[in-house]
Design a protein around this nucleic acid. Sequence first.
DNA 1: CAACTTTGTGCAAACGGTTGCATAGCTACC
DNA 2: GGTAGCTATGCAACCGTTTGCACAAAGTTG
Lengths: 341, 341
Amino acid sequence: MSTHRASISDLAAQLNLSVSTISRALNDHPSISDATKRRVWDMAQQLNYQPNQLAAALRKGRSNTLGVIVPHIDGHFFALVLKGIENGANQAGFNVMICQSNENVVHEKKNLDTLLNAQVEGILVSLSLTTKDVKHFEDVRRRDLPLVFFDRIMESPDVSAVVLDDYQGAYQAMQHLIEQGCRRIAHIGGPQHLNICKNRYRAYLDALRDHNLEQDASMVYFCDLTLPEGKVAMENLLNQHPDLDGVFSANDLALAGGMQVLRARGRRIPQDVALAGFSNELFASLTEPMLTTVDQRCEEMGRTAVKLLLDMVAEQPRKLPPRQIVLQPELLVRESSQRHE
Amino acid sequence: MSTHRASISDLAAQLNLSVSTISRALNDHPSISDATKRRVWDMAQQLNYQPNQLAAALRKGRSNTLGVIVPHIDGHFFALVLKGIENGANQAGFNVMICQSNENVVHEKKNLDTLLNAQVEGILVSLSLTTKDVKHFEDVRRRDLPLVFFDRIMESPDVSAVVLDDYQGAYQAMQHLIEQGCRRIAHIGGPQHLNICKNRYRAYLDALRDHNLEQDASMVYFCDLTLPEGKVAMENLLNQHPDLDGVFSANDLALAGGMQVLRARGRRIPQDVALAGFSNELFASLTEPMLTTVDQRCEEMGRTAVKLLLDMVAEQPRKLPPRQIVLQPELLVRESSQRHE
DNA sequence: CAACTTTGTGCAAACGGTTGCATAGCTACC
DNA sequence: GGTAGCTATGCAACCGTTTGCACAAAGTTG
């Protein structure tokens, strides 16, 4: 039969029915008789009919597709969130288009255009590192298109978002370090225009203050939280404060770098220096010692974000007020910080 | 102004031109005068016109979308391949729809239907663990739709595919272990119906034979290559062969599990037992000691696969013969196997 | 200046479905 | 037996673009 795909009108021709009847039969419309429906379904099977979603989407003005923009697709965190998003969307019968901004605002704008042209019904976004203003998202709101931010968000009360309670997680990690006896705790922090990094830093400061420990700006090193930058951070911190006895890092990767430096300098972990990270990367339980870290509920974040978005998509007169959902993190205590039973 | 998106006919009305002229002007068709084009472009700008890709796709029979089916989206390997795919596709002006089979054939079939309904112009697939027969892909070929397998493929000369030379990589790893003085090398293997695992096992056997080392079935343990299964594997191997002095694992994760067992039993790595894995997972350079492993050229695999697919999409009378592309892996020697300078 | 070409534009039919409205054939009721 | 109501189906417009063809106006040629 070559390459031609059976269409609704092929079915109509075969059965001597009109296309509208076929369409209704396929959609199980109540005003079509059971007998006819059966005939149509059988013929559909026989001709291996597959509906053309594009045509339906065009007519209905509903593409059944959601768009996602993430900074990058590799890396444990986003991969897991995407898994949650994809599963959630599929269950609701939606397809997902995924774009990477590569941590680049220009890309992010382009991605946005792409998704808008593809007529997606809603968009999920986690901002790139270099996104400082968010004018490009105005377009989306003008179109009245549902939009949900997750993890890296623009802080504003009139957008919907799903985030982790980074402050809470960081505070717990700090409290734990202090309970383990740490008194001179350093912090490896990330870019402060990102809500997540800012909140982790804020919790670090607050925990120190609440426990009457000194806050010292030179005990904090800000960087982009890569592995090599973690090394540099630790070198710097150790040089200025040879006597530090604990480190709280805004992510696991930088901490892994820092740990290599500590080991090279002969510090015992956790006896001399106790460590806590953030993210619960896969490798955090494979290092020696295993890293204490904060789990970010990645898949749950994805599922929650997509659920929120789908609620907004379904709500026809778009009157739903923006919602912010905050997920609670979980502190995972492992060898890198546990000093006594 | 509300929610209405400007369409081509809005432009036509504004400018007192026909929709066909607008369409041609927007597409820079040669038979439209420059003056008219400029007027149209200006008006498009002014009304913030964005083309409806769905309508164009329907009319042209070209959706500008590619489909990808992967076993899962988390995990370093697939994430990186996807990055390569997404970047390559975007550069060529294509969108990408990503589906996860969750290592489940039934899901895989459903994904396939989804992508076909969405009218993708080509499909990239890496098979799920539970896919043993591939009849469901017949449909794709009947439709004459470009199809490229990558990494986990169906072995058949008449499909296009991009794979790593797993045999070569595994053989190099084995040769390296042997050069380091290992004589009793065990193997942790994966499901043998997967081409990749089969080839790694074959290389293990061949390397032993080529170096006149004994092949012993009890030195091989097959499992699904997860972390806990790696532990079980190593327990078993050690119990039967307390004197083994090397391990080659079909992936890094199982090896990481195995390494924990070895350490618990007091074996020194690499002095007592030298280790080599496969995949170059992120964590492989974060463990203590760092793991020797084989890099899979993930991003390159993605870029290559999508390039091949796009070539097939472009080739109009679909006469391109199926092509198999084999990428060369790279052995990364690290602490877990390096016994002397 | 007739005939022919070129240039720029419009008409209308696709693409493959969905859907409001009309209608034909029955049944049922008073 | 006339009217109302219900059931099952068809007609035709529509979604937003693309594109083959027709055609008017202007330019070119002999």
